[in-house]
Write a protein that binds this DNA or RNA. Sequence first.
DNA 1: TCTGGGGTCCTAGGACCC
DNA 2: TCTGGGGTCCTAGGACCC
Length: 422
Amino acid sequence: MIALIDCNNFYVSCERVFDPKLKGKPTIVLSNNDGCVIARSDEAKALGIEMGTPSFMIKDFIRKHNVRVYSSNYTLYGDMSARVMRVIKEFIPRTEIYSIDEIFADVSSLTHTNPTELAMQIRESVMRCTGIPVSIGIAQTKTLAKLANRYAKKTRPGDSVFCADEEWKIQDILAFTQVEDIWGVGGQYHRLLKKNGFHTAADFINAPEGWVRKEMAVVGLRTQQELKGIACTEWQDEVKGKKNICTSRGFGKLITTKREVQQAIGTFTSSCAQKLRKQNSCAQRIHVFVQTNIHRKQDDQYFHSITLDLTVPTNSTRELLKYAMRGLDIIYRPGFKYNKTGVMVMDLVPADQTQLGLFESDTSGAKEKATMTAVDGINQVYGNDVVRMAKQEFNTKWKLRQNHLSKCYTTRFKDLMKVKAN
DNA sequence: TCTGGGGTCCTAGGACCC
DNA sequence: TCTGGGGTCCTAGGACCC
């Protein structure tokens, strides 16, 4: 049996841990640039605030209903996530972190324990150690566990735990779940399934396999199998390195000079390089893109991207910057109001398995590596942006808008909470 | 009139996830 | 004024090979 444990309204819950006054109050967390709603408390959901709504569209509504608003604070959420995961791993050795707020756990190895009781214990323990409420669904496959989890949230608000260990419970969940709420069914497949008369997961299970294969490819077929209790997704016992790494950002305001775009690209490239070195990988290709604001109908639109092959796989900031700037030179067009750019490093290979270029000497590689290690070391101790490459410069024009940012309570000494005792 | 067949690799784009 | 960011996997079709 597989358990899916996920944090309820995770980002909002993180904010609530450090400001208990938010309890019972409608609260939302916004995406970068304070753009869209990406997390909502139950009270905010009850008010009808939808996921993904641009915040400026509901400004008046927010004020009217006194909705508490936060900019996203990923430093805080990342650290809280690690704490939650640590607690869960103490109960179940075999786990697989699926996202910042979700983890699969293999509970079949713990045969001596009743899964429901175990789930209750985990829930209680996570709440006590971190202050974060979680829901837990247990079933035969990952897909069914996802459904069980959702079922628990919707029908068991008290304990938020559901274990589908009997046939009638599985049937209950399948009949309860609309096709669009199945893990693996998005907008396209939702329309397709509805059009063909499949409304619930129970309906979908009865769709002919040939039809599913033809219309939804093997991915759809796998989802269907998983719903029937046949496991099709492999268990990932070790954390796999990423195959691509991307850093991209929309700007707080529109940008019109090449120099500013270069600064942004420089910073994003440097960020990609750091992430590469952290997972001990080198990239073989780099992808750069620029775009204008697609929502501004009154502006001329421009989108262009380019992918460059690197002669030698690398994770050196300097080397990657060279290619990124070359790419930007090719795709940049003056006269547009740019809104967003990004850099992606692709086709990653382990850093220790890279081949030297024909004209590269081993000593130059070693020197570059030593430089980067030093840069990372200094930045780690003194903050992320102390040492930079020339192209990054220091510029705040295109930085994020974050008007409602909470503090880094758990990762920065000056943000530690103070407790007064009389 | 009539122009092979089978395989691999790569890429772009689509679908999905949180 | 203002609309997120970061990923994965699969597939179709073209290029290329013998």
